[in-house]
Structures are given as C-alpha cells and as structure tokens.
Amino acid sequence: MNGRNYRIPSGLFWVNNRDSVTVVDPARAVCEKLADEKAVLWRLLQQELPRDELIRLYAAIRSVSETDALLEINQTLAGLAAAGFAEAADG
C-alpha cells in the first residue's frame, strides 16, 4: 500500500520539548506544536529514515500494523500540509 507524497520545505526550525515538538516558520511568523504520535513522526522524519524503516519503526512504536501506520503517517502529514508545514507533492 502506498500513500501520498509530501515535501517538507526548508527555512523552518524545530525544537524537541519535554512532551512535544514545536516547528516554527519564521517567514510566516507561525508555529505548530506537535504532541504524542505526531511528535514521534516528526522526529523520525527528521532522521531521514528510508520509507520502509520509517513505517516499520513508527508501526512498532505505535503498536499498530504497518498498514495502519501508513494511514496515520498520511493523516499527520496532511495536517502538517494544511498548516503550511508540509506540501503535498503529487497534486
């Protein structure tokens, strides 16, 4: 199963806090706080893991199947795209 493709743009900054990740876009003067599984995904993404490794590890951390993991990852990225912190790359 495949999901959509996304692009995470440059020019953003992020920080790992105790219970969350915050991503800042200084150009738009906005920030987004990501908690729980969204923070997990962000940290995994920023390690530039290969797709299959990303899904395997995310699924293990979330204790879900890889299919469900892919769905969750898609959902989180869609949310990030809606907030302007990612871009859907396939229209």
């Binding site: 729980d36 590890l57 293990a60």
Partner: peptide, 16 residues
C-alpha cells in the same frame, strides 16, 4: 540505535 530509539519513543508515549 533503532532499539534505543524505539524504546525512548515508545516509553515516552506510554509514560505520557
């Protein structure tokens, strides 16, 4: 490293 990373992320979520 993946064992450490898994453990940290999984434990953080579960502990929260």
């Amino acid at each position: 490293p993946d064992v450490v990373q898994f453990t940290v992320e999984y434990a953080r979520l579960a502990a929260n």
